[in-house]
Amino acid sequence: MSINWKGVMPAVTTKFSNNDTLDLNMFEVNIQAQLEAGVHGIVLGGTLGEASTLLDEEKRTLTQTTVNIVKGKVPVLMNIAEQTTKGAVNAAQKAEEDGAKGLMMLPPMRYKAGNRETVEYFKAVANNTSLPIMVYNNPVDYKIEVTLDMFDELLKCDNIEAVKESTRDISNVTRIKNNFGDRLKIMTGVDTLALESLLMGADGWIAGLVCAFPKETVAIYELQKAGKIKEALEIYRWFLPLLELDINSKLVQNIKLAEVATGIGTENVRAPRLPLIGEERKHVLNVIETGLKNRPTLPDYKNL
């Protein structure tokens, strides 16, 4: 089993009702908007998905629901973010049972594992699932870097196929290409470096603001892929103030506010997160309102 690691894959938000239960109706509204825009996959249970607040049964419900919505049009991936190797293996096996076609996988949570421990953690999961795995390399937020030497060892597992490259070092795309060629696919994971990473050879984009602006996000990817760099850059420059809402500790609240503004989400978050208030809220709303006021007219990006 393998995934075509390319294109835009939204790290979708989890929708909650006013009673703090899963809002599967609004969740489907958003997923359908993503599919209509032409995304290439759906990633569940990441940071944007408020994974740390979700019960195991809620993660399973989200996986099963998404699989039923997409009906095989695009692969569904579940994020694995666990404290123990045993827990990670169990979560991966549940995701596979529930119909996920791939895994996004973080290093161990809470414990700052050493290089050998991190490698063994990833390998243990890879050896206990048939699903393809994308390693999420984000040392800025999660304090553990998966180095090139570590990938040398990890790639002995055939189903470790991709990296979500979030080191914030744009030259790392070239380092990965120089060392591994096409053996390790690169999905850029930082919205504000997305176009730069794609132009340097990244295969795709695990995106955040796509949750609110799916068409604009996919348009940037398709335009640059078709060599229409100027057209892609024009949209990207408009998009950048919005994309900066993703590189912020309140990214979930920020992006959910944007989803409300574009009609494909609600503001509800799960405690300890709380909706934005005061000047912080005013600033985010101003960024969103300015973006909407100047929203570009998109070309027929699906038929380039």
Results as ranks from 00 to 15, higher is better:
residue 4 N to M: 11
residue 6 K to C: 05
residue 10 P to I: 08
residue 14 T to E: 06
residue 15 K to I: 11
residue 16 F to E: 00
residue 16 F to C: 01
residue 17 S to W: 05
residue 17 S to T: 15
residue 20 D to R: 12
residue 22 L to C: 05
residue 25 N to H: 13
residue 30 N to I: 06
residue 34 Q to C: 10
residue 42 I to Y: 00
residue 47 T to M: 04
residue 47 T to P: 03
residue 52 S to Y: 12
residue 55 L to T: 09
residue 57 E to G: 00
residue 59 K to L: 05
residue 59 K to A: 01
residue 60 R to L: 02
residue 64 Q to P: 03
residue 66 T to G: 05
residue 67 V to P: 00
residue 71 K to F: 03
residue 71 K to S: 09
residue 75 P to F: 12
residue 76 V to F: 03
residue 78 M to K: 00
residue 82 E to H: 03
residue 85 T to P: 02
residue 87 G to M: 02
residue 92 A to M: 01
residue 92 A to S: 10
residue 94 K to R: 10
residue 97 E to C: 01
residue 101 K to S: 08
residue 108 P to G: 07
residue 109 M to W: 10
residue 110 R to Q: 10
residue 113 A to P: 08
residue 115 N to K: 14
residue 118 T to H: 06
residue 120 E to S: 14
residue 121 Y to I: 03
residue 123 K to W: 01
residue 123 K to F: 05
residue 124 A to M: 13
residue 125 V to D: 01
residue 126 A to G: 02
residue 127 N to C: 04
residue 129 T to S: 02
residue 132 P to T: 03
residue 133 I to G: 01
residue 136 Y to V: 05
residue 139 P to I: 01
residue 145 E to S: 11
residue 146 V to D: 03
residue 150 M to V: 13
residue 151 F to W: 03
residue 152 D to C: 09
residue 153 E to H: 14
residue 154 L to D: 01
residue 157 C to K: 01
residue 161 E to K: 07
residue 162 A to R: 06
residue 169 D to N: 14
residue 171 S to W: 12
residue 172 N to H: 15
residue 174 T to V: 10
residue 174 T to I: 08
residue 175 R to F: 12
residue 179 N to S: 15
residue 184 L to P: 01
residue 188 T to F: 06
residue 191 D to F: 13
residue 191 D to N: 06
residue 195 L to I: 14
residue 207 A to W: 00
residue 210 V to N: 10
residue 213 F to C: 13
residue 213 F to L: 15
residue 214 P to V: 08
residue 216 E to F: 01
residue 220 I to W: 02
residue 228 K to C: 04
residue 230 K to C: 05
residue 231 E to M: 05
residue 234 E to C: 07
residue 237 R to Q: 15
residue 237 R to S: 13
residue 238 W to P: 13
residue 250 K to P: 00
residue 251 L to G: 02
residue 251 L to I: 09
residue 255 I to S: 02
residue 261 A to Y: 12
residue 264 I to T: 04
residue 265 G to N: 02
residue 265 G to D: 10
residue 269 V to H: 07
residue 269 V to K: 06
residue 273 R to N: 15
residue 276 L to H: 10
residue 282 K to Q: 09
residue 284 V to Q: 07
residue 284 V to W: 13
residue 284 V to H: 07
residue 287 V to F: 06
residue 288 I to A: 07
residue 291 G to L: 07
residue 292 L to Q: 04
residue 296 P to R: 13
